[in-house]
């Protein structure tokens, strides 16, 4: 256990001592927040305002809170995954710099080295994501605060689950990578594509049914919806208390991806947790399995000699 702890500590220290890596990780949520606030806030506000049928009374501050919550959830949905990838690149970097050799010449078992990367990535991902969550909350305090303490705890839980998803996914993807070129290719693809794939940049409700069904097969989508549900719960509760028509409220929840459907069936929040947790278990299991198989292959090759 001490060995895993020591390796985790090393990987966390390496991440935070590498100013380039740290700044690029920290700047991702800051840039996203800035872009959302500058370019998307007004568009989203206008979309929601125009979607409300005429004659329904509502507080304009609520719409600002709604859009703020939407942007916060998008920010967290993307940064939890991209930051995990960024943090896990050390697994590849160690192969490039041959620092890995200095670890494997010790009697430490390979699975402990693998777990060191896993936990290191999780810690780094969590630290940066918590910074993003804090920044997002500060932003919400200005645009419209409707979160309860329980909502923040729920958001924290979502962040933990999503960072775990990012950690396990990046561990699996980064495992076979050995060069700097492969490293930057993966980084670019993830940064560019993931936001669209998980429904963070564009709500799923705006996609066609076919594409929506495809995206619903990806676990990240459920993470985004979980975040939306918890970031917007207070806003929708406030609307309800102001006698906002239930039908219009339901439509808004669909448009904001709080309500999502898997091939026509409404997915409940507990089911989203289940899918996300299941994905983490499967991906982490895959990561363990790869190491197990690699270890078996090594032993088998030795026996055949």
């Amino acid at each position: 256990m001490k060995q895993i702890l020591s390796l985790t500590k090393r990987n966390v220290k390496l991440f935070f001592r590498d100013k380039g890596m740290l700044i690029s990780s920290l700047i991702t949520p800051v840039i996203l927040l800035f872009l959302y606030a500058v370019f998307l806030f007004d568009i989203y506000r206008d979309t929601f305002t125009s979607a409300i049928p005429a004659g329904i009374p509502y507080d304009k501050d609520i719409i600002d809170g709604l859009v703020g919550g939407l942007l916060l959830s998008s920010l967290l949905a993307v940064s939890t995954i991209t930051v995990s990838f960024c943090a896990n690149l050390y697994m590849v970097q160690d192969k490039v710099t041959k620092a890995r050799n200095d670890l494997t010449i010790t009697p430490v078992k390979p699975y402990k080295i693998a777990l060191g990367y896993y936990f290191g990535t999780f810690c780094n991902g969590m630290i940066i994501s918590l910074v993003a969550l804090t920044l997002g909350c500060v932003y919400l305090a200005f645009t419209g605060w409707y979160l309860s303490f329980l909502d923040i705890l729920a958001l924290l839980g979502d962040v933990i689950l999503l960072v775990l998803l990012g950690t396990s996914l990046s561990s699996l993807i980064c495992y076979p990578l050995t060069t700097q070129g492969q490293l930057s290719a993966v980084g670019t693809i993830i940064s560019a594509g993931y936001g669209f794939l998980c429904g963070a940049y564009m709500p799923l409700a705006q996609y066609g049914e076919g594409l929506r069904n495809v995206l619903m097969c990806l676990p990240g989508t459920y993470g985004t919806s979980l975040l939306r549900n918890h970031a917007l719960r207070g806003v929708y509760a406030e609307m309800e208390s102001q006698n906002f028509p239930a039908e219009a409220l339901d439509a808004m929840k669909t448009v904001s991806d709080c309500h999502i459907e898997f091939f026509g069936h409404r997915v409940e929040v507990w089911q989203m947790y289940l899918v996300l947790a299941g994905a983490v278990v499967v991906l982490t299991g895959g990561y363990i399995l790869i190491h197990y198989i690699a270890g078996k292959c090594r032993k088998k090759q030795k026996k055949t000699k």
């Binding site: 060995q3 702890l5 020591s6 090393r10 220290k13 390496l14 710099t97 200095d102 009697p107």
Partner: peptide, 29 residues
């Protein structure tokens, strides 16, 4: 004990941190 042709220690970490991490891998804490 192996001294590689080129140093493979973590350049961003201090001498102390490097030695502490490597020692732990041999159970020296």
């Amino acid at each position: 004990g192996v001294v590689f042709q080129n140093s493979v220690l973590d350049k961003a970490l201090s001498v102390y941190d490097n030695l502490e991490t490597r020692a732990a891998l041999y159970g020296i804490t």
